[in-house]
Amino acid sequence: DEWTVEDKVLFEQAFSFHGKSFHRIQQMLPDKTIASLVKYYYSWKKTR
């Protein structure tokens, strides 16, 4: 599952609005599965 720079920026924006409500985040990133969002979240969180 490839994440473009745009995907990553959108994820951060969606996360700032919705927190860990992955269903709502998915509405902003409809091409990503919930599982993909959760997996990305945990790898992204480690870099914070």
Rank of each mutant, 00 (worst) to 15 (best):
28 M>S: 08
24 R>S: 09
26 Q>N: 09
29 L>G: 02
45 K>N: 14
32 K>W: 00
3 W>V: 05
14 A>P: 01
39 K>E: 07
9 V>N: 14
29 L>T: 00
30 P>I: 04
10 L>I: 13
45 K>Y: 15
12 E>D: 13
34 I>M: 11
18 H>P: 03
30 P>D: 06
27 Q>V: 15
17 F>S: 15
21 S>Q: 15
31 D>N: 10
17 F>A: 11
22 F>N: 11
23 H>C: 05
25 I>Q: 01
36 S>P: 01
37 L>V: 06
42 Y>T: 14
22 F>K: 07
7 D>W: 03
18 H>N: 02
17 F>H: 12
46 K>Y: 10
32 K>C: 02
6 E>M: 04
47 T>D: 08
32 K>L: 05
43 S>K: 14
10 L>Y: 09
17 F>R: 14
2 E>L: 07
39 K>Q: 03
2 E>S: 09
31 D>P: 06
43 S>I: 11
16 S>M: 12
19 G>V: 02
5 V>L: 09
47 T>L: 09
41 Y>I: 06
47 T>C: 06
48 R>A: 11
37 L>H: 12
24 R>I: 06
8 K>I: 10
1 D>V: 15
32 K>R: 08
40 Y>M: 07
5 V>S: 11
17 F>M: 07
35 A>E: 15
26 Q>R: 12
8 K>P: 03
9 V>A: 12
23 H>G: 05
47 T>G: 10
48 R>V: 08
18 H>M: 01
32 K>F: 02
34 I>R: 10
34 I>Y: 08
10 L>S: 03
33 T>H: 02
23 H>M: 15
34 I>V: 03
35 A>T: 14
34 I>N: 11
8 K>H: 06
27 Q>I: 00
33 T>S: 10
43 S>G: 12
5 V>Q: 12
45 K>M: 14
5 V>D: 13
31 D>L: 11
10 L>H: 05
29 L>Y: 04
5 V>Y: 15
44 W>I: 06
38 V>N: 12
30 P>L: 00
32 K>P: 03
43 S>R: 14
20 K>S: 10
38 V>W: 07
33 T>D: 10
44 W>V: 00
48 R>P: 06
48 R>K: 09
28 M>P: 03
33 T>N: 08
38 V>Y: 14
12 E>R: 00
43 S>N: 12
10 L>P: 10
16 S>I: 07
42 Y>F: 07
2 E>D: 06
45 K>F: 08
47 T>A: 05
43 S>C: 14
12 E>I: 11
33 T>G: 11
14 A>G: 04
13 Q>K: 09
8 K>L: 02
31 D>A: 09
15 F>I: 14
43 S>F: 07
10 L>N: 12
30 P>E: 07
36 S>V: 03
14 A>E: 02
43 S>W: 10
28 M>F: 08
4 T>H: 03
2 E>H: 11
29 L>S: 00
31 D>T: 10
9 V>P: 01
42 Y>R: 15
16 S>L: 11
29 L>D: 02
24 R>L: 07
9 V>W: 12
46 K>M: 05
16 S>Q: 13
29 L>M: 13
31 D>M: 01
13 Q>I: 07
15 F>Y: 02
17 F>Q: 05
38 V>P: 00
34 I>E: 09
28 M>Q: 09
1 D>A: 07
13 Q>W: 03
25 I>W: 06
16 S>W: 07
22 F>V: 02
33 T>C: 02
4 T>D: 08
12 E>C: 02
8 K>F: 01
34 I>G: 03
15 F>S: 06
12 E>S: 02
21 S>L: 06
26 Q>T: 01
36 S>D: 12
42 Y>C: 13
33 T>A: 07
8 K>C: 04
7 D>I: 08
25 I>G: 00
5 V>E: 15
42 Y>K: 15
45 K>Q: 13
22 F>C: 01
27 Q>P: 02
2 E>N: 15
3 W>K: 07
23 H>K: 15
15 F>L: 05
38 V>G: 13
30 P>G: 00
16 S>E: 15
27 Q>A: 14
18 H>Q: 01
2 E>V: 01
37 L>M: 04
37 L>Q: 07
2 E>Y: 12
3 W>P: 00
27 Q>D: 06
34 I>C: 01
44 W>K: 10
8 K>A: 06
27 Q>S: 08
45 K>V: 09
46 K>E: 07
38 V>R: 13
15 F>A: 05
42 Y>D: 15
34 I>W: 04
44 W>H: 09
20 K>C: 10
43 S>D: 14
23 H>D: 08
41 Y>H: 08
46 K>R: 09
21 S>C: 14
9 V>L: 11
19 G>C: 11
38 V>M: 13
25 I>F: 01
28 M>V: 12
30 P>T: 03
38 V>T: 11
20 K>M: 14
13 Q>T: 01
8 K>G: 05
14 A>L: 10
15 F>V: 10
19 G>R: 08
27 Q>F: 04
44 W>S: 07
5 V>M: 06
37 L>C: 00
14 A>W: 05
30 P>Y: 04
20 K>T: 09
4 T>A: 05
18 H>K: 01
33 T>Q: 05
12 E>T: 11
38 V>L: 13
26 Q>H: 06
25 I>R: 00
8 K>D: 01
2 E>R: 13
29 L>E: 00
40 Y>E: 10
37 L>E: 06
29 L>A: 01
23 H>P: 10
4 T>N: 11
2 E>P: 13
28 M>I: 11
25 I>D: 08
11 F>T: 05
42 Y>Q: 13
18 H>L: 03
25 I>Y: 08
14 A>I: 05
7 D>Y: 04
2 E>W: 10
2 E>G: 14
43 S>T: 11
26 Q>V: 04
3 W>M: 06
11 F>A: 04
41 Y>R: 05
48 R>L: 15
4 T>L: 04
38 V>K: 15
7 D>Q: 12
23 H>S: 13
29 L>K: 05
36 S>R: 08
42 Y>E: 14
22 F>W: 15
21 S>K: 11
18 H>F: 06
14 A>N: 02
40 Y>L: 00
44 W>L: 10
42 Y>A: 12
20 K>H: 14
3 W>I: 09
47 T>W: 07
31 D>K: 13
6 E>L: 06
12 E>F: 06
28 M>R: 06
39 K>R: 12
11 F>N: 04
26 Q>Y: 09
23 H>Y: 04
14 A>D: 05
34 I>T: 05
2 E>C: 13
28 M>K: 04
26 Q>G: 03
33 T>K: 13
25 I>P: 07
29 L>I: 11
9 V>D: 11
23 H>W: 07
45 K>R: 13
19 G>S: 08
37 L>I: 10
8 K>R: 09
5 V>F: 12
39 K>F: 02
22 F>P: 01
24 R>E: 15
41 Y>G: 01
31 D>H: 11
1 D>G: 14
40 Y>C: 05
7 D>V: 04
10 L>F: 05
28 M>G: 02
13 Q>R: 09
18 H>E: 00
40 Y>V: 02
21 S>N: 15
34 I>H: 03
36 S>T: 10
11 F>V: 02
33 T>L: 04
43 S>A: 13
33 T>Y: 04
38 V>Q: 08
26 Q>P: 00
28 M>Y: 06
29 L>V: 04
15 F>N: 08
44 W>D: 15
20 K>N: 11
44 W>E: 08
43 S>Q: 12
33 T>R: 04
14 A>T: 06
47 T>P: 13
5 V>H: 05
3 W>Y: 10
37 L>R: 01
11 F>E: 03
26 Q>F: 06
9 V>M: 07
25 I>L: 10
23 H>V: 11
8 K>E: 07
6 E>P: 06
33 T>V: 02
32 K>N: 02
32 K>I: 00
31 D>S: 15
27 Q>Y: 03
13 Q>F: 06
23 H>A: 12
45 K>C: 06
16 S>Y: 10
45 K>A: 10
28 M>H: 10
47 T>E: 08
5 V>G: 05
39 K>N: 11
22 F>Y: 09
9 V>S: 13
18 H>V: 00
37 L>N: 03
24 R>T: 11
24 R>W: 01
34 I>A: 01
22 F>L: 04
13 Q>D: 05
7 D>H: 13
11 F>R: 10
37 L>W: 02
8 K>S: 02
26 Q>S: 02
39 K>D: 07
35 A>V: 07
5 V>A: 13
15 F>C: 15
11 F>P: 01
32 K>V: 00
9 V>C: 01
35 A>I: 13
30 P>M: 01
45 K>G: 04
9 V>K: 12
38 V>S: 12
10 L>W: 01
35 A>Q: 11
13 Q>G: 00
6 E>D: 09
18 H>R: 00
8 K>Q: 09
46 K>L: 05
25 I>M: 04
35 A>Y: 09
